[in-house]
Design a protein around this nucleic acid. Structure first.
Length: 779
DNA sequence: GGAGGCCTCGGAAGG
DNA sequence: CGAGGCCTCC
């Protein structure tokens, strides 16, 4: 076969090993996707029926890309491969099988905000305090339980868990979990974790189902295996138990999702589950320069918990890694923007060849501002999703109720929106009745007798009108296409009218968003099936199918305008996994930011941060620039930081330390002083191979009892202090005005002798004396 | 029922 | 600082 020649030895061996357990450890940039797609193509060319292949990925995007690449190689047969995310593949299977679990096949998938709202409702009903039982924490705890296949009842009989909850002053957590599960079930709803949890129950408790899917999925492949959690691991293990044709691909060095339950041990222990596993290591990097690969390798060596591998490249040395020091976060933005601008000029680079990576979303602001100032187009990944916007959720909630009227979260959202006189009292009463009778709210609503018995005539009438509205849509669900019915719902519900009447800019934008969703429906309906695809001519593209589809979509899946994609990319390091760019800027490389403050107390957490940094470095093809700021605004406070330890972990031979440049048009005193007097970023060369760097020499920290790193911005701040030199005029709270006549000592213990006009000469430690600068030194 | 004041709190994020 | 949630007041 031709295409096997396009692979290196190890890649080819991995592709050709079709049977039995296979583990592929794929270093960054080693052609992992290529190996995966070729392997599937090779399976199909070896007469394996595509229907017998299951390929699991972590994102829809990865699945789509892989599918289209395989299609290019083997043709439309690729359509029949079971390929998708864990969640989408098993949601599909659950729709076939879930009646065995007591779920309706039109079950709703709750997103995180639905789950949180349900938890809040339960907390209220149980009279638990939302501050003690923070909904996000409660949800995380429930999620962790489900991920480990612990049901609510098992939770309540698990002494260890109950003790933990008592110790953390949340003794009722198990009860909340139990209520939460009941409500989901009663609403015919599953949350994201349920999709994996119930799949496991299905495969565990129904041998015929297990057998059916084991026979269907004779070949199983899992991408990003280092990021699988226990529930996912177990599904894969169960499915593959019969044939053991299981191939997992991953890189332990790029595991960055432990914080949400990924278990790096899954890949580290694969060998234990399958002793006759064939392991292949893809170690040749085709993406990056030698300097980048070298730097990344050295960094990751600081981690203890790793599989052994040596990533290397035959690419050229390339440029050294730039380190840019900045005084503030805004200056950092400007440095990055300026550098992008210069690179575009000097190297004829395109905007889309650049990416700026940061640890937290909040850092994007300063970068955005600077790029805007320099007229550099950019695009941000992340942030609020289209599907999370209120007006979009509202309309989709109508869809959800029409499809599955048991769906309580959606029902509560729309029963009185737009307003139809069904107030809080009525909804509360419905909830109480529903809880007392252990029935979903819709089953109460749909009984006119019950309504007349429980509510006054006016309220009962209003509820009936609402029920009839929903019913009128339901009669069309199977026969009318998604666009037609969706538009009808949007207008007949009064939602469009409500938004149209709001002429404020926000209102207009909401209205436009609804139009965009309706356009999406139209596209969905008009989407042509592939040429060879067998389609039932009478099959209607229903609203039900559309709603199922989008439940598992995120913003990253929305098509971006291909005409207009020449833009600089801004995103978090997490979001950058799997991507590559010629020029990468990693910003905010400061202690307490990257690595994050919250990671510093435990070794595993710090190692995950380091893997995150490793991921960031290895996104780059040609050049990496690292930058940090001496001070930045965080939560309204000026915070002073030291450069990240991760910079120090890169050997000097790979680094190009450049001082911060003053802005071209406005030369600030600060920058002048900094660049003239202060050795900005120096390394000690104490013998061979010492990588210690002299910490910020000019950085004087106030070390009081406040939170580490957070300083009072009031009377004195150390940016000012760092500018104090002999001759500076200063004011002291007690001694008044004076002039610095001498300085001695090394930061942070610089001692200044100040001649005060009223109080004479005083010796003061700069880090304690809150001196304010009133005049600069006359030179 | 909605506007506006007050309070709290802040990680990363796939499905 | 700024977003989001909650409460209050009209």
């Amino acid at each position: 076969m031709d295409f096997l020649n396009e692979l290196n030895d190890e890649q080819r061996k991995a592709v050709e090993q079709l049977n039995g357990p296979v583990m592929i450890i794929a270093g960054a940039g080693s052609g992992k996707t290529r190996v995966l797609t070729y392997r599937v193509a090779h399976l199909i060319n070896s007469e394996i029926d595509p229907f017998n292949i299951l390929a699991l990925t972590f994102t829809n995007k990865a699945a789509r890309e892989m599918r289209s690449r395989i299609e290019q190689m083997v043709g439309t047969e690729a359509k029949n491969i079971w390929m998708g995310t864990f969640h989408s593949v098993f949601a599909k299977i659950l729709r076939f099988e879930c009646e065995r679990l007591g779920y309706p096949s039109n079950f709703t998938i709750y997103d995180t905000s639905d789950s949180k709202n349900l938890i809040k409702a339960i907390l209220k009903e149980e009279q638990l305090d939302e501050k003690t039982y923070k909904p996000s924490l409660v949800l995380n705890r429930i999620s962790a339980a489900k991920t480990n296949l612990i049901s609510a009842n098992e939770y309540l009989s698990n002494d260890e868990l109950l003790t933990e909850d008592r110790m953390s002053a949340k003794p009722k957590l198990g009860i909340v979990y139990q209520k939460y599960s009941e409500r989901l079930f009663r609403s015919g709803a599953m949350d994201f974790d349920d999709l994996l949890y119930w799949t496991n129950v299905l495969l565990r408790d129904f041998p015929d189902v297990l057998n059916k899917y084991q026979n269907r999925f004779k070949y199983v492949m899992v991408d990003e295996y280092q990021d699988t959690n226990y529930a996912q691991y177990l599904i894969v293990k169960r499915l593959a138990a019969k044939f053991e044709n299981i191939c997992v691909v991953g890189d332990d060095a790029q595991s960055i999702y432990a914080f949400r339950g990924a278990n790096i041990q899954n890949i580290l222990n694969f060998r234990k589950d399958y002793p006759d596993v064939k392991t292949f290591k893809l170690e040749q990097n085709y993406r990056s320069t030698k300097h980048i690969v070298g730097a990344a390798n050295h960094v990751i060596e600081n981690n203890r918990d790793r599989l052994k591998k040596t990533v290397w490249t035959s690419n050229m040395d390339g440029e050294k890694i730039k380190v840019i020091r900045n005084l503030t976060d805004n200056e950092e933005g400007m440095s990055v923007a300026r550098s992008i601008f210069e690179t575009k000029m000097n190297e004829q680079a395109l905007d889309k060849q650049f990416a700026v990576l940061y640890r937290t979303n909040a850092q994007s602001r300063a970068i955005e501002e600077a790029l805007r100032k320099m007229n550099i187009p950019y695009r941000i990944y992340g942030g609020q999703s289209f599907y999370q916007r209120k007006e979009i959720k509202d309309l989709i909630s109508y869809f959800r109720v029409v499809i599955n009227p048991q769906d309580e979260e959606a029902l509560k959202r729309i029963i009185n929106y737009p307003a139809r006189g069904i107030g809080k009292t009525t909804i509360d009463k419905l909830t109480v009745l529903s809880n007392d009778w252990k029935q979903d709210i819709w089953s109460i609503l749909r009984s006119p007798d019950l309504l007349n018995e429980q509510f006054n005539a006016g309220t009962a009438k209003k509820l009936e009108v609402f029920v009839n509205l929903i019913r009128s849509f339901q009669t069309e669900l199977k026969t009318t296409d998604a666009y037609e019915l969706g538009s009808k719902i949007a207008s007949s519900s009064g939602l469009i009218g409500e938004l149209y009447s709001d002429r404020s800019p926000e209102g207009v934008s909401r209205y436009e968003n609804i139009q965009e969703l309706l356009n999406g429906l139209k596209e969905f309906v008009e989407e042509k099936p592939g040429e060879d695809e067998v389609v039932d001519e009478n099959e209607v593209k229903t609203l039900e199918k559309f709603t199922e589809d989008i439940a598992l979509l995120t913003d990253a899946d929305k098509d971006t305008d291909p005409q207009n994609n020449d833009k600089v990319t801004l995103m978090t390091v997490h979001a950058s996994k799997g991507l590559e760019f010629p020029y990468i800027y990693i910003v905010g490389l400061e202690e307490n930011l990257f690595p994050s403050q919250l990671s510093l107390s435990s070794r595993p957490d710090l190692e995950e941060e380091r893997r995150l940094f490793y991921v960031a470095l290895t996104r780059a093809e040609k050049r990496v620039s690292l930058s940090y700021a001496v001070s930045r605004f965080r939560w309204g406070n000026m915070v002073y930081s030291e450069p990240s330890r991760f910079i120090e972990e890169i050997p000097e031979q790979f680094l190009d330390l450049i001082p911060s440049k003053p802005a071209p048009n406005k030369i600030s005193v600060t920058s002048q002083v900094e660049s003239r007097n202060v050795p900005v970023f120096k390394r000690k060369s104490t013998g061979a191979g010492s990588q210690k760097m002299i910490k910020e020499r000019n950085l004087t920290k106030y070390n009081d009892s406040r939170k580490p790193g957070v300083l009072d911005t009031g009377s004195g701040n150390s940016e000012h202090v760092s500018r104090i030199i002999v001759g500076t005029e200063v004011i002291h709270d007690k001694f008044g005005k004076g002039e610095v006549v001498a300085m001695e000592g090394e930061p942070p213990n610089v001692k200044a002798t100040v001649a005060f006009q009223g109080a004479g000469n005083k010796q003061l430690l700069l880090k304690f004396a809150k001196l304010r600068i009133v005049g600069k030194a006359k030179q």
